[in-house]
């Protein structure tokens, strides 16, 4: 169980994450999404006690993780930027981790290595990036942690291996009740495996929901007008992501459908219908501020 409580982390004068809180239950896979530089890695490193937050606390099974050897022995952090001992192979790395993780299983290690078809005696610096990532995941799962922190761990894996890893992690969580946080900027990846999704935007947690709850009070509205009205017809309606195609307008709004219907009554819409937002649409809606006007960039 992981409790992130009001965590703020600064790098000098720059605030990377601010007052961020969420909870990961036992046996839960928590997907952490956000654009590049949103603070996903900072959060994971803070959870692993690599970074020390300026404010807030991170609890592992109720214990503050800060310099807590007992709590940290439950955690395996797989960073985005992998490190292996100089001139080492998987076997040496397994010995290394076995010294630090009380429940490291060489049996699991051998089985997983076989499953992925990796030579445990071959030097790791001779492995491809994808193979190194597989090796690190094997080592992580062999350590039998109860807290698994995976930072962009599917990057560099081929689709087949990606599915194997997902299945493995899912199975591991099911069997052991491990709490997992997986960070990624790929929403699709997380939506299939995560029990819950957290979206970091603007240094804060903008969204914290189950994959099916992504829509929340937000919905997508489609209106068909009898005439080709301008966008001004939506002036008094809170909306985002407006797409106009002649007489058809599609937009997102958190206002109830009935209120929207009343506000558009004067324009006599031919059709007014409401759809739930997919996780991706909700992600894009939250990230709207990050959109660029590319045409403006190249204007002379």
């Amino acid at each position: 169980m992981i409790d992130i409580k009001n965590v703020t982390k600064n790098f000098g004068s720059f605030t990377a994450i601010q007052d961020l809180s969420f909870h990961v239950d036992d046996g839960m896979i928590y997907g952490l999404v956000g654009y590049n530089g949103a603070g996903k890695t900072t959060l994971l490193k803070s959870a692993a006690d690599v970074y020390r937050p300026e404010e807030g606390e991170i609890l592992i099974d109720g214990e503050n993780v800060k310099d807590n050897a007992k709590a940290k022995q439950k955690i395996f952090y797989v960073p985005d930027d992998l490190y292996f001992l100089p001139y080492s192979n998987m076997e040496k790395m397994a010995k290394f981790y076995s010294g630090y993780y009380p429940h490291f299983s060489f049996d699991t290690f051998r089985k997983l290595s076989k499953l992925f078809g990796l030579d445990i005696k071959k030097r790791l610096n001779g492995f491809s990036k994808g193979m190194q990532r597989q090796a690190e995941l094997i080592l992580a799962l062999s350590a039998h942690p109860t807290i698994l922190l995976l930072d962009e761990s599917f990057d560099g894996l081929d689709p087949q291996k990606r599915n194997v890893v997902k299945d493995l992690v899912g199975e591991y969580v099911k069997e052991t009740g491990t709490s997992v946080i997986i960070s990624s900027h790929n929403l699709h990846e997380l939506s299939g495996i995560s029990d819950r999704i957290g979206l970091i935007n603007g240094k804060r947690l903008a969204l914290d929901c189950g994959p099916g709850e992504a829509s929340g009070s937000h919905s997508k509205i489609r209106v068909v007008f009898p005439l080709d009205f301008s966008e001004d017809v939506l002036l008094n309606i809170e909306h985002k992501k407006l797409v106009k195609d002649g007489k058809i307008m599609t937009f997102c709004s958190n206002e109830p459908l009935e209120r929207i219907r009343q506000k558009l009554e004067d324009f006599k819409p031919l059709l007014l219908e409401e759809f739930p937002l997919t996780l991706e649409e909700r992600f894009m809606e939250e990230m709207e501020g990050a959109e660029y006007d590319f045409a403006e960039i190249f204007k002379v």
Binding site: K45, A48, D67, A69, K72, I75, P79, D81, Y100
Partner: peptide
């Protein structure tokens, strides 16, 4: 002095 090694060593279950 290396981010890579710090990621590993600081996250290990041992007091600093």
């Amino acid at each position: 002095t290396s981010k890579k090694t710090v990621n590993v060593y600081y996250s290990l279950g041992i007091k600093r």
